[in-house]
Design a protein around this nucleic acid. Sequence first.
DNA 1: GAGCATGATTCTAT
DNA 2: ATAGAATCATGCTC
Length: 377
Amino acid sequence: MDDQTRMLASMAGLGGLSQADVSDPDSVRKQQSLGQPPQDIGDILQQIMAITDESLDEAQARCWPEEAPAQWTPQREGELGGSTAGCALPLNFQHRKHALNCHRMKPALFSVLCEIKEKTVLSIRGVQEEDPPDPQIMRLDNMLLAEGVSGPEKGGGSAAAAAAAAAAGGSPNDGSIEHSDYRAKLAQIRQIYHSELEKYEQACSEFTNHVMNLLREQSRTRPISPKEIERMVAIIHRKFSSIQMQLKQSTCEAVMILRSRFLDARRKRRNFNKQATEVLNEYFYSHLSNPYPSEEAKEELAKKCAITVSQVSNWFGNKRIRYKKNIGKFQEEANLYAVKTAVDAANVSAQASQANSPATPNSGGYPAPCYTPDGRL
DNA sequence: GAGCATGATTCTAT
DNA sequence: ATAGAATCATGCTC
């Protein structure tokens, strides 16, 4: 017998045969006809390949029929191309798995599977390249961040909330109610968004773990590279991120609806009430030389008028420019408030028994109206 | 409804 | 950041 024959015989699991048996072609043929393992490695591999084409059930049914112990024959064993070690074991599947793992042909089977795997991986390589960051997701993320739905919670909720706060109009109480309402609704959206996002992330992580465990389990019987696991994880993440995108999209829509509602409300301006306008005008004309209230003064005026500081700023901005543009038109109003201020000052003076001039003398700044200290123009 | 008044917004300059 | 200026959108009066 030559070396090649001996090697093939050994690989084919013919260790039990004597050299005489192997070297005797008739003896080998005899064994084959009796259902004993074939000697040709090519035949063995062909059979293995054939098994891979079968379903597990078919293979099981063929290898381990329910009545296997009773009907088992060397013929059947021969069909499997293996020794009796694997097939003659009890029906319990775990035992069969164990048997398969211990089977002396397992390394050969495994290497064939590796080869097939390698080819398959090569054929699908490049099909699933890393996707570039989706611009749609980026857009949604940016919007949610800007609106204060994602990212760190903002004190005021968002710029729109601030705008809503500034839009108190003629009914400041309504404004504050609207503002808090906006904030509450935005917070609600934020809460729903985060809880849903958390759910998705948890589900994604659980599912990923589950799949990874399955793959690890399967890697005992078939070759699974870490790269392949990685790819599977990436696929799962992609699926879940598309779900997340839907969530982000609907959240954005909800914010847009909420926002447009409040911006519409902002456009419905209300005139300040008479008392508020009077307080503001009094300050303006009594500080005509420098009608720029400090932050403290603005806050005090806002409190007095029950409006916001930014509304006070708006009012003074408008007043300054409109006064400057048409001093003549405001002359009467200016005189009126000058008299009022003078009278108030006189009252204070009388009460305090000391003479006081108006709050701020008009020196420079905006042109002062003509009036006399007794109130006559 | 026209015209004016007025609060809010936006853009520009400082 | 703030003020000035222009402008918009709505309210009010006639």
